[in-house]
């Protein structure tokens, strides 16, 4: 929950509410992107961004290389599996 997990924004669901769909290792779910948008980086420009997702909120934009490295270490720590599993379960209901 504290370490977050990297994912890629694949579409904007609701620009007003700043909601987008993210892909995290093949699991897709809706996240809130309010913390990574500002005047210079409006909602529409977020598609394709790699982000660090904490409990359903994109908290930081990262580059693709960083995303891959982070995923690797999270997998070794066992945190990635737990996080993805929690996401998968929550995506269902």
């Amino acid at each position: 929950m504290c370490l977050g997990i990297p994912g890629r924004i694949i579409k904007i669901d609701d620009a007003g509410r700043k909601l987008a769909t993210v892909d995290v290792s093949g699991v897709r779910r809706q996240i809130n992107i309010a913390c990574i948008v500002d005047a210079e980086h409006p909602v529409e420009s977020c598609v394709g961004d790699w982000v660090l997702v904490h409990v359903g909120f994109a908290m930081s934009r990262i580059d693709e290389h960083e995303a891959a490295e982070t995923l690797k270490i999270l997998t070794e720590l066992g945190e990635a599996q737990a996080e993805i599993e929690a996401m998968r379960r929550s995506a269902v209901h």
Binding site: M1, C2, R17, N32, C35, H54, F57, M59
Partner: peptide
């Protein structure tokens, strides 16, 4: 709602969404 500043924004934004 649990956690340090890392997760605090998530519950704050959720409350704001509930209000909206």
């Amino acid at each position: 709602g649990l956690g340090f500043e890392t997760t605090m924004p998530s519950t704050a934004l959720t409350v704001l969404q509930a209000e909206a």
